[in-house]
Design a protein around this nucleic acid. Structure first.
Length: 289
DNA sequence: CACTTGACCTGTCCGC
DNA sequence: TGCGGACAGGTCAAGT
C-alpha cells in the first residue's frame, strides 16, 4: 500500500498508540525482514521507550530513548498493526471483528510492550524491512543520502521541483517521477493521478515538459497527496488503515485503477498501459503523448 | 553518469 | 477444477 500519504497516515495513527510505551521483547522469524535483530535488540531495544515517530519519504523512523531508531520500510505489502487487549488497530482506531488474529503467516516482526500490547510488522511479500541503528547514523545510510526533498514541505517551491528533473532529461516523466532521488514519496498511484491532473502523458520525455507544465504538476502532486492524507490514504480491500476509515482515497481517484471508466474531465475512456515497467493509467484525450 | 531490465517474494486473478 | 503466466501501491543490483 505505501506511498507518502499512506506512510504518513500510519505515522499519525501509530504516534497516538505507541509513543510512551516501553519495549519488553522483539523478535523476527525472517532475518531479511529485520537483519540486525539478533545482534542489537537486547542491548538497544529491550527496556527502551518509544519517544517519537517521524517519516522521511516512505520510511518510518521510530525513535527510542536509547538514541537508537527503528527504521521501517513497508515496500509493497508491509503493514504495522497494533493489538491491545485483544483489539486490533490498523494504525489508528479499532477495527471490526472481521480481522484474523495475529500473528499470522505474514507476520515478520513482533514487538511486545511492557503493558501487554503488541506491534506487528506484517509483510506478505517480504520486500519490506525493519532496521535498528543509532539515530545519529540514520542520515548516513544510502537511502537517506540519495532521497530527494519532501514534496509537501512548506519551503519546497515549484522552481525547485522542476530543477530536480533536469538530471533526467532523457527518460520519461513517469520514470523520473518515480525516482526517489528526484522527489521523495511519489509512487505509482500518485504519479498517475497527478500526471492526469496536469494533463501530461507519462511517456513524455522530461526534456519536453515545459516550465508551466512542471508548475502544474507540482501543484497537482501536492493537492493529490494532501487530499490522500486527509482521506487516510489509499487501501486495497484487506488493509486496515488509520482513523478506522480504511483509507478512502481510491474513492476519489480519477484514473488509477479506473481503466474502462470515464475520464471525469472529458468523459473519454481511461486506458491502461505499461510505462517505466509499471501499470499506467491515462486519459487518451486529456494526456497526449 | 544516466537509463533499462530483472530480481527480490507471495498471492491472486484470468485465460486456456 | 487445474495450471501457467501476468501482475501487484517499491526499491536495488546489475547490465548497456
Amino acid at each position: 500500500m505505501p506511498e507518502l500519504p499512506e506512510v504518513e497516515t500510519v505515522r499519525r495513527g501509530l504516534s497516538g498508540l505507541i509513543v510512551g510505551k516501553t519495549i519488553r521483547a522483539a523478535s523476527t522469524d525472517n532475518p531479511k525482514s529485520f537483519p540486525n535483530a539478533q545482534t542489537d535488540v537486547d542491548e538497544f531495544m529491550i527496556g527502551a521507550e518509544i519517544t517519537a515517530i517521524h517519516r522521511r519519504a516512505k520510511v518510518l523512523l521510530i525513535e527510542l530513548s536509547t538514541d537508537y531508531t527503528l527504521m521501517v520500510h513497508l515496500k509493497m505489502t508491509g503493514q504495522l498493526v497494533f493489538v491491545a487487549n485483544g483489539v486490533r488497530f490498523g494504525a489508528g482506531h479499532p477495527n471490526d471483528s472481521l480481522v484474523n488474529a495475529l500473528p499470522d503467516r505474514s507476520t515478520r516482526v513482533t514487538i511486545n510492550f511492557t503493558d501487554g500490547s503488541t506491534l506487528y510488522f506484517n509483510d506478505q511479500r517480504k520486500f519490506g524491512w525493519v532496521r535498528l541503528l543509532p539515530t545519529l547514523e540514520v542520515p548516513e545510510i544510502d537511502f537517506m543520502k540519495k532521497v530527494g526533498p519532501e514534496p509537501l514541505a512548506a519551503d519546497f517551491t515549484a522552481e525547485q521541483f522542476a530543477a530536480r528533473f533536469t538530471r533526467r532529461a532523457k527518460t520519461s516523466i513517469k520514470a523520473a517521477f518515480l525516482d526517489q532521488s528526484v522527489v521523495a514519496g511519489v509512487g505509482n498511484i500518485y504519479a498517475d493521478e497527478s500526471l492526469w491532473g496536469a494533463k501530461i502523458h507519462p511517456t513524455r520525455l522530461v526534456g519536453s515538459v515545459t516550465k508551466d507544465e512542471f508548475a502544474l504538476l507540482y501543484s497537482e502532486l501536492r493537492d493529490v497527496m494532501n487530499l490522500a492524507i486527509e482521506k487516510g490514504g489509499s487501501s486495497n480491500q484487506n488493509y486496515v488503515n488509520a482513523e478506522g476509515k480504511k483509507g478512502s482515497y481510491m474513492d476519489f481517484a480519477r484514473v488509477f485503477r479506473r481503466e474502462g471508466q470515464e475520464c471525469p474531465r472529458c468523459h473519454s475512456v481511461i486506458e491502461k498501459s505499461r510505462v517505466a515497467g509499471r501499470g499506467t493509467h491515462t486519459c487518451p484525450v486529456c494526456q497526449l503523448p
